[in-house]
Design a protein around this nucleic acid. Structure first.
Ligand SMILES: [Zn+2]
Ligand SMILES: [Zn+2]
Ligand SMILES: [Zn+2]
Ligand SMILES: [Zn+2]
Lengths: 150, 150
DNA sequence: CTTGACCTTAGACCAACATCCAAGGTTTAT
DNA sequence: ATAAACCTTGGATGTTGGTCTAAGGTCAAG
């Protein structure tokens, strides 16, 4: 049995994080000491390990809650139940990736259109693009343009 | 001059959003009517357009605040000032993309290792991986494995 | 002159994930 | 016996970008 500080240190998280997980139904210590201290068992330790590993894969605490409730009732759950959660998260991740790809493309276009020098920003292509149309850059108007880039 | 509801409708945002932008120093209507209504000018409209366009590129409201303060003082700012903001955001976006790529890889590995069928989750490779090591999947232990996938 | 659409304000609430604080009790070592 | 290190609780705080509500004032139409 571990006290909160011991378990927290072993996994390099804060004591508060374990209390937070408890409050949100992810990890309840299996007992309390006479004085009310949280006492974590080996199984609790395994659950914490599960939680932290699931986080590294991108699951939210809500997802993990769902996965854990399947885990505790493995026998009455199906592979399909588990896979649905994984595939939903995968779809979510891919949606975010698409958004970030769009950001990246736009930002690169903006960056490439600007000389980045000490010249006045009055003619800055980036500001012009943001003021009118990000996808329609007119670098020829940027009269101190670094032409090497084009 | 536009009242808040007119401007909001024109850009398909909520009135509250405009008030929120004002509270955070992004867009202050250039005047108020006698009765205290916010009155937005054409220039205010241009600024809102700038804000919303910058959002589509991935800038946070804090970034936009910075870009706007450069914009209003274009003459005394340099291209470098603008480009720094863009390049910082680009780096931030690419960091997030790397994280998402990692999530995607792990999730795909998990998904591919699971049959997704109605069999008991007691042998589910996903749960096993999360309980022990996400990066070291042992699908041969998943005895109702869909072998077509391998 | 009243109805309905519009506007004002301050402040509460939401997701997501913690982190920190205050005020006090417990345990361990010296 | 007392200090250091640990634990308890509830609640506040922070981030990001809004959304919503309550209680009330304004404006145009019928
Ligand atoms: Zn330039
Ligand atoms: Zn420039
Ligand atoms: Zn299976
Ligand atoms: Zn499975």
């Amino acid at each position: 049995m571990y006290r909160i500080g011991e378990l927290a240190k072993a996994f390099d998280v804060k004591n508060d994080t374990l209390r937070f997980y408890e409050k949100h139904g992810l990890l309840t210590p299996s007992s309390r000491s006479d004085s009310g201290y949280r006492m974590y068992s080996e199984e609790d330790k395994q659950i914490l390990s599960f939680i932290l590993r699931a986080k590294t894969v991108g699951f939210s605490l809500a997802d993990i809650h769902e996965l854990l409730s399947i885990e505790v009732d493995k026998a009455n759950s199906a592979c399909a139940d588990v896979k649905v959660v994984v595939d939903a998260k995968l779809a979510e991740v891919e949606t975010k990736m698409a958004e970030l790809n769009h950001f990246q493309k736009s930002l690169k276009r903006l960056s490439n259109a600007c000389c980045g020098g000490s010249e006045s920003a009055a003619d800055c292509t980036i500001l012009e693009a943001l003021a009118s149309d990000v996808n329609n850059i007119h670098p020829e108007q940027h009269h101190h343009l670094n032409k090497e880039r084009f």
